[in-house]
Design a protein around this nucleic acid. Structure first.
Lengths: 233, 233
DNA sequence: CGGTGTGAACCACTTCACAGCA
DNA sequence: TGCTGTGAAGTGGTTCACACCG
């Protein structure tokens, strides 16, 4: 799932275009699709094609893109390169965003090893863990980055200017780690631990729980087998 | 993120209570919270308390629970055990759901090793990979389950009666694997590869893209720094 | 033509506010 | 008295349908 924690940042107006949250959640997908098209030297694309490649309705794609004030050509479509630039710009990939990862288990390592991060504007400035079995060892085979001790968390955040943190620890440690991240100045947290975290209002949390995703699938699966699949009139 | 693929299953009515999707996505969270309370031998809980522990408003909790036709006591609260039973029952955890995982990289391994799965009603019946470097080796240190070759995918699905599959492969392989899963009879797929998959209408896909989650955080992060944080009247 | 951009209708979900009951 | 359960109002997002224009 993806809990949205703060119902609506009581203050904090948006910039010009007033982009809805639902649109923002889709922009990265469009970006990926457009990047692939650009790679294939496709110059023009229609909302219908973007829709098909993103699993969204074409009307929704057009609405989303209109929020960026983006410029398609009527009767033709969108210019892939300029649209990609627009989307990328809206997502703010201009600068390199430092990210710190807490927990060098499977998920933490997966994220640290993920090839797609640099191209999306992220740089992992450190992976920390509490276990002596992991500290000092390379994060993955393909990197020379080493896992650092939890004690260095604050130093890593400070030196790397990280404002985004990832919690990939067991549930029991999550709130403690969260507090330390917030204390160190991290403002955005991606939490993989299966617990609800308490944070100050100005810190944003995104929750990803793998078991929850499976449970949602299972629910629909169950319903499908109980319900009559085709029910006309 | 969590793309909802089918805008609304054109057919397929819901059962009695007509439970909304948004509620379903929160039920697993309530389940977790209630299980923890039960563990602590708490007998009664109010919607306010559940709300606090789940990061949801109390009105929303009450509304959600009312969809299950659940029975709280006015002036008192909910009986933890019976409510937990209700929620669990609604999620359909009665039976053990077999799951097959494709890709024994970090994410696939993380899921296979996740302790929380059995208690939520899932059983991993197989982990397959195409790489000779992984096939035959134990999935994790703590299991005797071994990674099996991709060629055995269909056999594993059949023998394990798996109707849920997880794709944890590189993007390039995802559609191919997806086709094979569907062909083998899998009806629900959790996809971690950063691609949009094409599936028949009766197959449900849930998409989890770690980079997308980070990008959404980054967007808000950016906006926060650009916008005036406190803007009264 | 053909595809964008968008008002307007529609829909799903959330929140408010309070009646109703232990 | 206090908390549930729920009509009614509010909010945000999606879809429709078509005017508009290259």
């Amino acid at each position: 799932m993806t809990l949205r924690h703060s119902p609506r940042e009581g203050s904090a107006r948006r910039i010009g275009g007033e982009i809805p949250d639902a649109t923002i959640a889709r922009l990265p997908v469009y970006q990926r699709v457009l990047a692939a098209l650009a790679e294939s030297h496709v110059a023009i694309v229609s909302s219908e094609e973007i829709a098909a490649a993103s699993g969204v309705s074409s009307a929704n794609v057009r609405r989303d893109l209109s929020h960026l004030g983006s410029q398609g050509t009527r009767g033709v479509g969108y210019h892939v390169f300029s649209l990609l630039a627009h989307v990328t710009q809206a997502l703010g990939i201009s600068s390199e965003r430092p990210v710190v990862i807490v927990g060098a288990g499977h998920i933490g390592t997966a994220l640290a090893a993920y090839q797609g991060l640099p191209s999306r504007g992220f740089r992992v400035v450190g992976v920390v863990d509490i276990s002596v079995d992991r500290v000092g060892f390379p994060v993955t085979e393909s990197t020379q980055m080493r896992v650092r001790p939890l004690t260095e968390l604050e130093a890593i955040v400070r030196e790397g200017s990280a404002r985004i943190g990832v919690i990939a620890t067991p549930g029991a440690a999550a709130q403690y780690v969260c507090d330390r991240l917030v204390q160190a100045g991290v403002r955005s947290i991606l939490n993989f631990a299966p617990v609800t975290l308490a944070v100050p209002q100005d810190v944003e949390i995104r929750q990803v729980d793998l078991a929850v995703e499976l449970q949602i699938l299972a629910f629909h699966e169950q319903r499908r087998t109980v319900t009559i699949p085709e029910c006309s009139a």
